[in-house]
Design a protein around this nucleic acid. Structure first.
Lengths: 270, 270
DNA sequence: CGATTTTTTTGACAAAATGTCAAATTTGAC
DNA sequence: GTCAAATTTGACATTTTGTCAAAAAAATCG
């Protein structure tokens, strides 16, 4: 029962191809640009077959989002390995976020979409938890960096009331600055008009300012920081491009839950 | 030609009512929840009539967004008048953003929607510029606070390369922290799971940390800051509730551009 | 006031998209 | 090669959008 028949193999593979085909569609014109029929045609199939894989558009978007978050998580994790001191690893994650937005723009856009479109309610809990779990892992990644920083004396945990609250503040602060900044940059046509011409510089400076203020050592030094940026950005870009073509069948059943058309509920009266 | 016939009056009024009826619909289930027919029925009209006012759903959403941004702008402006030192006015705007998200939640949601849904391209340039102009005014509001702070010596403009770049950094930083933070709070179900239980506290602290780091005086002092919060928040809430029922016929032609079915281009030969 | 012109509303229509399902086809096992 | 199981298909019912000529209502004017 463990060897997959050719047909089963094809079906699995197709699941992935559906996402590949749908992804570029969504980018320009959003959710409403996904037409079950276009996807089917693009794959030389009929709508019915697509519906055997995903019961509706929302599930497709959710599956794309799952893949996107998984990729982002992988990139963030990779980023932390490129530096050897917590604060620099932290900076590396920030850069990874920039690279993510630039080099996996479809994934970036999809993640935003999934937040706002009323997709959430129409999808199965299974897909939702995948997403939530991944996001939580991203948050915890920064949490462990903070732990490590306190451990090695780079950050003083005793200035604030509790370590938990310090973690909260830093994590949420960086998240807001980077995610918020990138979203604003991506969606606000009035940025340049308003004199904000270098949002990326602003994001970086602000993150550093925040961490400096909280006295997370070593404090910002332009030369060091820029050296780090120049050193690791190319690596991040390479990794991002790799990720785009990786299969991510890892947490398979969850990521790409193959659904037998006749349903999983068939057996109760047969 | 200046006195409006009763009918013309009714039509103008209806434009506003359409937005009122549509607004609560969109909240729960997003853009796709606006059905031209539901709106029509809710107003005892037929779809055709709605189409005389707005050529498509996107324009309705855009009109709602225009009203929302105008309200936010008014609230921000009001906030600055509640404090008498630039840094405190700045804090007041941050609080105003919180109040906006809490007490005008439909408007807040609509603003986000308009950013991400592919509404932008399908709408008329006129509506778009309204939105952009309002947003720019919001940005400039912070810009002038920075100018004022430098003027009165609370902020040292000579530490950074240029004042423009300082402005850029502060404006964008606060914007990212507050907007980003509120959006994350509103759309990330995994926040609490991840140990971030007081996003509002985190946002406030981070904004203050950022401004302190840039040495915008007077530096943060819990007692003063909390006093400010307690003093002005009630005023902001009152104002927010007022704004919800104000008519905003101000920049009328733009905000609520009545479209004569036979087109606005009729007058060129009369 | 009533006739006429203009504006507004209507509802029937075509088009596009979703989601369903019994019948047709393909696959895999023997 | 045959047959049962799984898969694909395309026709169908449904929902929503957007259009438009005809009907209705409102404004204008003698």
């Amino acid at each position: 029962m463990e060897t997959l028949t050719p047909k089963q193999r094809e079906i699995r593979e197709r699941e992935r191809r559906i996402l590949d085909v749908a992804t570029p569609m969504i980018r320009e014109h959003g959710m409403s640009a996904i037409k079950m029929d276009s996807i089917a045609q693009a794959m030389n199939l009929t709508r019915g077959t697509i519906y055997n894989h995903f019961p509706n558009k929302e599930e497709i978007l959710m599956a794309m989002a799952g893949r996107a978050v998984a990729r982002r998580m992988a990139l963030f994790h990779f980023a932390t390995t490129l530096a050897d001191r917590p604060r620099w690893s932290c900076a590396a994650i920030g850069l990874a976020a920039e690279v993510y937005a630039d080099h996996l723009p479809d994934d970036f856009a999809i993640e935003q979409m999934v937040r706002h479109d009323p997709v959430w309610q129409k999808t199965s809990p299974k897909r939702r938890t995948v997403l939530l779990d991944c996001e939580e892992l991203c948050i915890q990644a920064i949490g462990s960096l903070i732990d490590a920083a306190i451990e090695c004396g780079d950050l003083d945990g005793s200035t604030t009331t509790t370590i938990a609250s310090l973690k909260q503040q830093i994590t949420f602060g960086l998240w807001s600055l980077v995610y918020g900044g990138l979203v604003i940059e991506a969606t606000s046509p009035s940025l340049v008009t308003s004199g904000i011409e270098e949002p990326r510089q602003a994001i970086r400076r602000n993150c550093n300012a925040l961490l400096d203020q909280l006295d997370w050592r070593p404090h910002y030094k332009a030369s060091e920081y820029n050296a780090l940026v120049n050193r690791i950005t190319p690596n991040l870009i390479v990794r991002a491009n790799e990720l785009q073509h990786e299969h991510f069948e890892g947490p398979s059943d969850l990521m790409l839950g193959a659904q037998t058309p006749n349903g999983g509920e068939k057996d109760h009266d047969s």
